[in-house]
Design a protein around this nucleic acid. Structure first.
Lengths: 127, 127, 127, 127
DNA sequence: GTGGTCTAGACCACC
DNA sequence: GTGGTCTAGACCACG
């Protein structure tokens, strides 16, 4: 289900957060669907339960999931507002990465192509 | 000259690397121009010299500057090859950020506008 | 375990890098084996932890080891490609040293004998 | 006459020492021949005279040249003994470099070919 | 317990 | 004056 790189410099819990975000964004995991329990995921991935917990808490903080104590963790509905803060941060990151990419020779057309691909992937599920 | 967030989770030397990259990319600092000396920057920013050193060595590793021991640190000429690896990494990051941005409601047109702005900023200096 | 010359002009961390390379090359330290922790080595050699760190990071940069933050440093698998650059540098050094050695009277047969010894030492572990 | 890399990490005086050694070893500069004066070389290379001086002193220390105060610097006769110390050091370096080269995949035959080339270059002048 | 980062301050080689 | 190295010792994130 997941491929985590235990040798990566990036913390495992962050990798988990990213992977789960992808699943949510691409709507493999749908709104209100239950995520695998900490214990199950922990044994499946042979990873410390604390690490899973930390990832779930982080996703909750970012509004991607919500937790019902005693029940489990569930995918949250996307709120298209209240994200201005996060969007500002993303925009900033975007500028940084784009600057470097263009400086190193990536072409504008290549970038636009990437955008289109991502756009299809993300919004493809909606109508 | 710089605004560093000493409280950020992101290491100071990484922040410095990013800030300096921006200056180089936007050609505020030009090829072969000398960067402020480790000690000068250290006192200006009230940051330990070792931290500045680390940032400079990282920039050198990435090919953005070169160092002449006993002379100083200087902006390197851009090499348009040998960047394929770095570009692949940037592309990957790009996909990740774009996914999330689009998911959270950023519009394709907005993104393209950002690209154009960055493109002008970076390539504006060239002819 | 190591004999470092603290008075040498050669930086301690470079000496460490060389010593560790020998251990890795001669397969005293085997692939994926854990290296002594920064702190342990630091107290064993009565050398500052930062210096050990620097040596480890240099070895990582050269592809001899990899680091798992929070876990330790481990011997990397040898990659037989991507070394062309390094090999070119080594070849250059070789020519320089051989020139001087032959000029000072070292005989071709002696050198070939040395090669054979090294060859056995390095490739002896393989089949 | 010389190509010095002012951008190299290696000190300029060391580069000079190496270049001059090559000229002496390959007998472009012959025994008792006079080396260019510090002043001349200094202006030719647009390099600080102190740096040239340092290189000459180093070559003298290693027995490659001798200096007649008020006259100049001259190529010394090779002494085929008294070099045991230097030869031991070279041998040690040789082992180190060969180990790494072989470890990284350089073949024994390649190395022997290099030796032959160098041997011809160095001893070619003699009969 | 592990590596990663940072500070404060020192000494050295180079030019 | 410049970068390069090193020490002594601290704090933090990670698992």
């Amino acid at each position: 289900m997941f491929e985590l790189d235990l040798r990566s410099r990036k913390p495992i819990y962050e990798q988990l957060v990213e992977k789960l975000k992808v699943l949510i964004i691409s709507e493999v995991l749908k709104t209100d669907e239950q995520l695998p329990s900490v214990r199950v995921l922990s044994t499946q991935l042979t990873i410390n339960p604390n690490t899973i917990q930390k990832a779930y808490r982080e996703l909750e903080r970012q509004g991607y999931i919500y937790s019902l104590p005693g029940k489990g963790n569930f995918v949250a509905r996307v709120t298209r507002d209240g994200n201005t803060e996060r969007l500002a941060k993303l925009r900033e990151e975007l500028v940084k990465i784009l600057s470097e990419a263009i400086y190193l020779g990536m072409k504008k057309e290549d970038i636009i192509k990437i955008i289109s691909e991502v756009d299809v992937m993300v919004r493809g599920g909606e109508k």
